[in-house]
Amino acid sequence: MKNFKLVVILALFAFSASAQDLAMTTVNNYGTYTPIEEKEEIIPLLNESKYTYKYKGENVVVVFSEDKHVEYFNEGKYFIKSDISWVSEDECYMTLQESNLPNFPFKKGIKLKMKITKIKRGYIFYESTLGGRTWEGRMRKLY
Protein backbone atom coordinates (compact mmCIF):
# COMPACT_ATOMS: atom_id res chain seq x y z
CA MET A 1 0.00 0.00 0.00
CA LYS A 2 2.90 2.31 0.75
CA ASN A 3 4.28 1.76 -2.77
CA PHE A 4 0.86 2.46 -4.29
CA LYS A 5 0.69 5.85 -2.50
CA LEU A 6 4.19 6.67 -3.74
CA VAL A 7 3.22 5.82 -7.34
CA VAL A 8 0.08 7.98 -7.10
CA ILE A 9 2.05 10.92 -5.68
CA LEU A 10 4.71 10.61 -8.40
CA ALA A 11 2.02 10.38 -11.11
CA LEU A 12 0.26 13.51 -9.79
CA PHE A 13 3.58 15.37 -9.64
CA ALA A 14 4.45 14.34 -13.21
CA PHE A 15 1.01 15.41 -14.47
CA SER A 16 1.16 18.80 -12.74
CA ALA A 17 4.69 19.43 -14.07
CA SER A 18 3.68 18.60 -17.64
CA ALA A 19 0.47 20.69 -17.36
CA GLN A 20 2.56 23.62 -16.17
CA ASP A 21 5.00 23.13 -19.05
CA LEU A 22 2.09 23.03 -21.51
CA ALA A 23 0.61 26.22 -20.06
CA MET A 24 3.94 27.99 -20.54
CA THR A 25 4.20 27.20 -24.27
CA THR A 26 2.82 28.59 -27.48
CA VAL A 27 2.21 27.02 -30.90
CA ASN A 28 4.57 28.32 -33.58
CA ASN A 29 3.94 28.54 -37.35
CA TYR A 30 5.00 24.94 -37.83
CA GLY A 31 2.37 23.49 -35.47
CA THR A 32 4.92 22.58 -32.80
CA TYR A 33 5.15 23.94 -29.29
CA THR A 34 7.76 26.51 -28.32
CA PRO A 35 8.32 27.60 -24.72
CA ILE A 36 7.11 31.18 -24.23
CA GLU A 37 10.45 32.35 -22.90
CA GLU A 38 12.10 31.18 -26.14
CA LYS A 39 9.68 33.12 -28.37
CA GLU A 40 11.65 35.31 -30.79
CA GLU A 41 11.18 39.06 -30.92
CA ILE A 42 9.67 40.18 -34.23
CA ILE A 43 11.60 42.92 -36.01
CA PRO A 44 9.24 44.33 -38.66
CA LEU A 45 10.50 45.31 -42.10
CA LEU A 46 8.52 48.57 -41.88
CA ASN A 47 9.59 49.93 -38.51
CA GLU A 48 10.21 53.67 -38.04
CA SER A 49 9.95 54.52 -41.74
CA LYS A 50 8.00 56.66 -44.22
CA TYR A 51 6.59 55.71 -47.61
CA THR A 52 4.41 57.23 -50.29
CA TYR A 53 1.92 55.94 -52.83
CA LYS A 54 -0.51 57.49 -55.29
CA TYR A 55 -4.25 57.57 -54.64
CA LYS A 56 -6.50 59.30 -57.18
CA GLY A 57 -3.46 61.13 -58.56
CA GLU A 58 -2.43 62.49 -55.15
CA ASN A 59 0.54 61.48 -53.02
CA VAL A 60 -0.31 59.72 -49.77
CA VAL A 61 2.38 59.64 -47.06
CA VAL A 62 2.45 56.51 -44.90
CA VAL A 63 4.28 56.52 -41.56
CA PHE A 64 5.14 53.32 -39.70
CA SER A 65 6.34 53.48 -36.10
CA GLU A 66 6.78 50.72 -33.53
CA ASP A 67 3.09 49.90 -33.15
CA LYS A 68 1.31 52.65 -35.13
CA HIS A 69 0.46 53.29 -38.77
CA VAL A 70 -0.76 56.63 -40.16
CA GLU A 71 -1.69 57.55 -43.74
CA TYR A 72 -1.82 61.27 -44.57
CA PHE A 73 -3.95 62.46 -47.52
CA ASN A 74 -4.22 65.89 -49.18
CA GLU A 75 -0.91 67.14 -47.73
CA GLY A 76 -1.84 66.06 -44.19
CA LYS A 77 -5.36 67.49 -44.12
CA TYR A 78 -6.89 64.01 -43.79
CA PHE A 79 -5.59 60.88 -42.10
CA ILE A 80 -6.20 57.23 -41.23
CA LYS A 81 -4.65 56.04 -37.94
CA SER A 82 -4.26 52.39 -36.99
CA ASP A 83 -2.57 50.22 -34.40
CA ILE A 84 -0.21 47.59 -35.85
CA SER A 85 0.30 44.07 -34.59
CA TRP A 86 3.16 42.28 -36.35
CA VAL A 87 2.85 38.49 -36.61
CA SER A 88 6.13 38.12 -38.53
CA GLU A 89 8.71 40.48 -40.00
CA ASP A 90 6.67 40.78 -43.22
CA GLU A 91 3.06 40.37 -42.08
CA CYS A 92 0.84 42.47 -39.82
CA TYR A 93 -2.68 43.36 -38.85
CA MET A 94 -3.71 47.02 -38.74
CA THR A 95 -6.66 47.86 -36.50
CA LEU A 96 -8.38 51.13 -37.43
CA GLN A 97 -8.47 53.62 -34.55
CA GLU A 98 -9.40 56.94 -36.15
CA SER A 99 -9.99 58.63 -39.52
CA ASN A 100 -11.18 62.00 -40.77
CA LEU A 101 -11.01 61.01 -44.45
CA PRO A 102 -14.29 62.07 -46.13
CA ASN A 103 -16.60 59.22 -47.13
CA PHE A 104 -14.34 56.65 -45.48
CA PRO A 105 -16.51 53.52 -45.31
CA PHE A 106 -14.83 51.68 -42.41
CA LYS A 107 -15.42 51.95 -38.68
CA LYS A 108 -13.07 51.86 -35.71
CA GLY A 109 -11.92 48.34 -34.89
CA ILE A 110 -11.91 46.88 -38.41
CA LYS A 111 -8.73 44.91 -39.18
CA LEU A 112 -6.68 44.97 -42.36
CA LYS A 113 -4.11 42.24 -43.01
CA MET A 114 -0.97 43.26 -44.91
CA LYS A 115 1.69 40.88 -46.24
CA ILE A 116 4.89 42.26 -47.76
CA THR A 117 5.57 40.25 -50.90
CA LYS A 118 8.72 41.91 -52.24
CA ILE A 119 11.19 44.73 -51.65
CA LYS A 120 12.89 46.04 -54.77
CA ARG A 121 14.66 49.31 -55.68
CA GLY A 122 13.17 51.31 -52.81
CA TYR A 123 9.65 49.95 -53.27
CA ILE A 124 7.64 47.79 -50.90
CA PHE A 125 5.21 45.49 -52.70
CA TYR A 126 2.36 44.15 -50.59
CA GLU A 127 -0.94 42.32 -50.55
CA SER A 128 -3.74 43.61 -48.33
CA THR A 129 -7.00 42.02 -47.26
CA LEU A 130 -9.91 43.90 -45.73
CA GLY A 131 -13.54 42.86 -45.47
CA GLY A 132 -13.09 39.84 -47.73
CA ARG A 133 -11.45 41.91 -50.50
CA THR A 134 -7.77 41.43 -51.40
CA TRP A 135 -5.61 43.74 -53.53
CA GLU A 136 -1.95 44.35 -54.33
CA GLY A 137 -0.09 47.63 -54.04
CA ARG A 138 3.29 49.24 -53.72
CA MET A 139 4.83 52.09 -51.74
CA ARG A 140 8.04 54.00 -52.40
CA LYS A 141 10.36 54.66 -49.46
CA LEU A 142 10.93 58.32 -48.57
CA TYR A 143 14.51 59.10 -47.61
Rank of each mutant, 00 (worst) to 15 (best):
K113Q: 11
A19M: 12
V60N: 01
Y126A: 04
I110V: 14
E127M: 10
G131E: 06
I110F: 08
L46H: 07
L46G: 00
S16G: 02
K111Y: 02
S99A: 05
K111F: 01
T26H: 09
R140A: 11
K39T: 13
Y33C: 11
T25E: 10
T117G: 06
K81P: 00
P105Y: 09
Y143C: 06
E127Y: 04
F13M: 13
I116A: 08
R121Q: 10
Y51K: 06
I84Y: 04
Y72T: 09
L130D: 02
E89S: 15
K68E: 06
D67T: 08
K2T: 15
K39C: 05
L112D: 06
N3P: 06
D90N: 15
I36V: 12
A19I: 10
P35D: 12
Y51V: 02
F13E: 05
M139C: 07
K111P: 01
E71W: 07
E91C: 08
N100G: 00
N47D: 12
G76W: 02
E58G: 04
V7N: 09
S99N: 02
A19T: 12
I80V: 13
Y51L: 04
F15I: 11
V87H: 10
T129W: 01
L101T: 09
T34V: 14
T129V: 04
C92Y: 13
L10M: 12
E127Q: 14
R140L: 13
F79W: 01
K111C: 07
E136N: 14
